[in-house]
């Protein structure tokens, strides 16, 4: 069961989940109420068909798995806003990290080669 970010605009008290195909509406209701202690008014489900696409290398056609999507309706006075998780995210090529790895790589490169049978200055 995973919480999905809504692609289309939803009401404030509707939350989307991706659950296993075997789960029924009643299963989902019990799951949320018993394990996560969430009040639920209604559960609606649909089965979203997986996208069909062409493989880049072989050109064969690939279909992603179908998945069951549940729309869980919370009580009227409650609301759920999907949090912005990457608000202050550091990029993959963060300056600090890059500088650190640069100096580390240089040290690694300048270091004496200790492989047996090879001179210390030898590197590939």
């Amino acid at each position: 069961m995973k919480l999905l970010k809504p692609k289309n605009k939803q009401l404030a008290n509707v939350v989307q989940f991706h659950c296993s195909m075997e789960m029924t509406k009643f299963d989902i209701k019990n799951y949320m109420e018993k394990i996560y202690n969430i009040d639920i008014i209604e559960v609606r489900t649909r089965i979203a068909m997986g996208r069909t696409k062409k493989d880049q290398l072989q050109g064969s056609i690939i279909k992603e798995d179908d998945r069951k999507i549940a729309y869980v309706v919370l009580p009227k006075d409650q609301s759920f806003v999907f949090p912005d998780l990457f608000k202050d995210a550091k990029g993959e090529f963060d300056e600090e990290i890059m500088n650190e790895s640069k100096s580390k790589d240089l040290q690694e490169y300048v270091k004496e080669n200790k492989a047996p049978g090879l001179p210390g200055w030898f590197r590939i």
Binding site: L3, N37, I38, P83, K90
Partner: peptide, 17 residues
């Protein structure tokens, strides 16, 4: 704290590498 925010990691881990 049993609520919907349990589906997310702790806020201090958000956006970390």
């Amino acid at each position: 704290n049993r609520d919907l925010m349990e589906f997310f990691d702790e806020p201090k881990n958000w956006g970390r590498n």
